[in-house]
Amino acid sequence: MTQEPTQFQLTTPESVASDPDAVELTRMWWSKGEPVMSIKPAFTDPRQYGHMLALAAKHMAHGYAVRHGHDERQAYNLILEGFSEILKRNDVQTVVEKE
């Protein structure tokens, strides 16, 4: 596997690295024109994952404001709009890759 360009590399936050009880729940990539992810349904209550996705959307909107100069509220609304567009579709399928 080739290494990603530096501007796309993510690092593990120190607070997570130092927490022996931390659990990784999702890894996501954009690959070959589509999202690819590895997920672990570790929460017993699926709403907790929804909470995590909502917080991720808020943090991503902030990232768009800082990195790309977007209005943070508008970026958040666009993220929610994209979320809504996918939820309305009937053609989303889960494909499990062989290990």
Score class of each variant (00 low, 15 high):
residue 2 T to M: 11
residue 3 Q to I: 08
residue 3 Q to F: 05
residue 4 E to M: 10
residue 5 P to H: 09
residue 6 T to L: 13
residue 7 Q to M: 03
residue 8 F to I: 08
residue 8 F to S: 09
residue 9 Q to K: 11
residue 9 Q to Y: 07
residue 9 Q to P: 02
residue 9 Q to F: 06
residue 10 L to R: 08
residue 11 T to P: 03
residue 14 E to S: 02
residue 15 S to Y: 12
residue 16 V to G: 08
residue 16 V to M: 08
residue 19 D to C: 01
residue 21 D to Q: 03
residue 22 A to N: 00
residue 22 A to Q: 02
residue 23 V to L: 05
residue 23 V to E: 08
residue 24 E to H: 00
residue 24 E to L: 04
residue 27 R to G: 04
residue 27 R to A: 02
residue 29 W to V: 04
residue 29 W to R: 04
residue 30 W to L: 04
residue 30 W to F: 01
residue 31 S to D: 08
residue 32 K to F: 05
residue 34 E to I: 11
residue 35 P to F: 09
residue 35 P to R: 01
residue 37 M to P: 01
residue 38 S to V: 07
residue 38 S to P: 06
residue 39 I to S: 07
residue 40 K to Q: 13
residue 40 K to C: 11
residue 42 A to Y: 06
residue 43 F to V: 00
residue 43 F to Q: 00
residue 43 F to G: 00
residue 43 F to N: 07
residue 43 F to S: 03
residue 44 T to F: 14
residue 45 D to G: 08
residue 45 D to S: 05
residue 46 P to M: 01
residue 47 R to W: 06
residue 48 Q to K: 10
residue 49 Y to V: 00
residue 49 Y to S: 04
residue 50 G to S: 10
residue 50 G to F: 03
residue 52 M to H: 08
residue 53 L to M: 06
residue 54 A to L: 07
residue 54 A to Q: 10
residue 57 A to H: 10
residue 58 K to N: 03
residue 58 K to C: 05
residue 59 H to W: 11
residue 59 H to R: 13
residue 61 A to N: 07
residue 62 H to P: 03
residue 62 H to T: 15
residue 63 G to C: 12
residue 63 G to W: 11
residue 64 Y to M: 04
residue 64 Y to H: 06
residue 64 Y to W: 04
residue 65 A to E: 10
residue 66 V to L: 15
residue 66 V to P: 08
residue 66 V to Q: 14
residue 68 H to R: 15
residue 68 H to L: 15
residue 68 H to K: 15
residue 70 H to M: 14
residue 73 R to I: 08
residue 74 Q to G: 07
residue 75 A to T: 02
residue 76 Y to D: 01
residue 77 N to V: 06
residue 78 L to I: 04
residue 78 L to D: 09
residue 82 G to D: 08
residue 83 F to T: 11
residue 83 F to N: 08
residue 84 S to Y: 11
residue 84 S to W: 10
residue 87 L to V: 14
residue 88 K to S: 05
residue 88 K to Y: 06
residue 89 R to H: 11
residue 90 N to I: 13
residue 91 D to P: 15
residue 92 V to R: 13
residue 93 Q to T: 13
residue 94 T to R: 14
residue 94 T to K: 14
residue 94 T to C: 14
residue 98 K to N: 15
residue 98 K to A: 15
residue 99 E to S: 13
